[in-house]
Each structure stands twice: as structure tokens, then as C-alpha cells.
């Protein structure tokens, strides 16, 4: 079957003496959305960095297995919280950057047009990033990630820099795009509404050092969900109960920690 399986075995990480992750073992199945939730500072971004090869874990192994489409240019692809757009390139230019030197011009233009249409940005192909709203910038980030036809999308709080309305709108767009593209996805969030809207597998991490506290599965297809489904809200409540005490403790720790 097409698609990438991402496997972590006993992954641990420490920044110098600070142990951040401890014995994380999990698997994201092909086409599945794995959501990572947990209190602030528990190591979610660290874990995502390790998954994408942007950070070398101090222990354990990360591996991928599966078949990747022939037109995939970058199997593991990030969508950044702060968008990471080049201010000196237009919307189309930002996407072109990651295709350049790998595809002939005509094919690049076709892909750019395709992902801009998918993210409703066609009219803004020539705009500078500074001329766009936050939600549009993040859509450019998504378009850029989709343009390389990733086998696995790694998203670190992609909506957290946006206002609540934009977040709701983009959340549904994400769900539609992920469902259509069928890429394996790891999605980090603080927001439990996002977690139940997108997650097939929701992994709850404990306070630092992050360990897996619970794994919740939701089998319903993304296209059959809305963020307001009552049963999903119930699951969201359950998740919140699990991390509430941890979150409060983490917050105290943050405030109390000597400078």
C-alpha cells in the first residue's frame, strides 16, 4: 500500500542536562493523522523535530517505511508555526524555491498553480508575504508543503499564530486537504478542538520529561467530522481532564523557575 509509516522506538531527548523526552514509542500508520498534545514545554516541538530529522535524538530510533509516490520531492515536510516565508519572494516564488532545480519550469508552474488553487490563493500568486493576512500566509505554508507532494506532513501548531475565526476556517480546510492528499500527518497542538477534529490517533504527553500518558483513537473519517460533533467534544473534555493538572503544574513551574 502507498504511504509512509513513521515509527518511533524508545525515543529520548535531553538538552544538556535537561531531560525532555523519555521513552517515546509510537507509530503513525500510512494516511493517518497523529496528533500530539500535552502541556507547554513537554517536548512536543522537540519530538516533531526529531521525527523530521531536524534534531538528533539522544536516544532511541526513528524510522520510516513504505512506498513513496514517484513525484514526491521531500518525503518528510514541515509546515511551520511562524509560516517561514521568504519576505523577498512572492507567494508563487516561495513555492518555486522548493521546486527549483528539481523540476523543469513547466512542471513547476503546473504544480504551483495546482497547490495555489487547492489553498484558494490563485489570485495572490504575485503578492508579497507582507501583503497577506496571517491565515493567508499559513495557507501559503501549506501550499508550499503540498507542492513537494510529501509522504508525511509535520505540522507544529500551524494555527496558533492566527485568530480564532481564521483558525476555525483553516481547520476545516486542513481536514479536507489532508483527507484528499492522504498523507501521513503528525500534528502538534495545544488546542483540543483541533486535536479531535483532525486526529485519528491522539497521543497525550505528560509534563516534562514527556512520556506517553494516553493514546486515544478516533476512527471516523475526517470528511465526516465537524469541530462541533458532540461525541468529539466529549473526547476533547476527556483529553483536557488528562492534561489539566499537568498543564497547571507546568505553568507553575514556568513562573516559579528562577531566571
Amino acid at each position: 500500500m502507498m504511504g509512509l509509516r513513521l515509527i518511533l522506538e524508545q525515543v529520548s531527548h535531553a538538552y544538556r542536562d535537561l531531560s525532555v523526552l523519555d521513552g517515546i514509542t509510537l507509530t503513525a500508520a500510512p494516511g493517518e493523522v497523529l496528533v500530539l498534545v500535552g502541556p507547554s514545554g513537554c517536548g512536543k516541538s522537540t519530538l516533531l523535530g526529531i521525527m523530521g530529522g531536524m534534531l538528533a535524538a539522544t536516544g532511541g530510533t526513528v524510522s520510516v517505511t513504505g512506498e513513496v509516490a514517484a513525484d514526491c520531492l521531500n518525503p518528510l515536510t514541515y509546515v511551520f508555526q511562524d509560516f517561514a516565508l521568504l519576505p523577498w519572494r512572492s507567494v508563487a516564488g516561495n513555492i518555486d524555491l522548493v521546486l527549483r532545480a528539481r523540476l523543469p519550469k513547466a512542471e513547476r508552474q503546473a504544480r504551483i498553480a495546482e497547490v495555489l488553487a487547492l489553498t484558494n490563493l490563485t489570485e495572490f500568486a504575485g503578492a508579497w508575504p507582507r501583503q497577506l493576512s496571517g491565515g493567508m500566509r499559513q495557507r501559503v505554508g501549506i501550499a508550499r508543503a503540498l507542492a513537494v507532494r510529501p509522504a508525511c506532513l509535520l505540522m507544529d501548531e500551524p494555527l496558533s499564530a492566527l485568530d480564532a475565526q481564521t483558525r476555525d476556517l483553516l481547520l476545516d480546510e486542513f481536514a479536507a486537504i489532508i483527507a484528499r492528499a492522504g498523507t501521513t500527518t503528525v500534528y502538534v497542538t495545544h488546542n483540543l478542538k483541533e486535536a479531535v477534529r483532525l486526529g485519528h490517533q491522539i497521543v497525550v504527553l505528560s509534563r516534562r520529561p514527556g512520556r506517553i500518558r494516553a493514546t486515544v483513537r478516533i476512527d471516523r473519517a475526517l470528511t465526516d467530522r465537524t469541530a462541533r460533533d458532540p461525541d468529539l467534544l466529549v473526547i476533547g473534555e476527556e483529553l483536557w481532564r488528562m492534561i489539566r493538572d499537568d498543564a497547571a503544574a507546568a505553568e507553575r513551574e514556568r513562573v516559579d523557575a528562577p531566571a
Binding site: T77, F80, L86, W88, V98, R100, A101
Partner: peptide
């Protein structure tokens, strides 16, 4: 640095990162 990491995460070559990200950023 975030822009450079972005380039690396997309698997761009060192040359492409220098030409596409670092030089224009330093311009």
C-alpha cells in the same frame, strides 16, 4: 535561522540555500 531551517527541511542543497535564502537575506 528559521528560514534556513525551512530550506533544510525541504531538502534544499547548500548552494540553493545560500543563493535562495542567505544571499537575499543578507542583501
Amino acid at each position: 535561522r528559521g528560514l534556513i531551517r525551512m530550506g533544510q527541511s525541504f531538502g534544499l542543497s547548500t548552494g540553493a540555500i545560500v543563493r535562495g535564502i542567505i544571499l537575499p537575506g543578507a542583501l
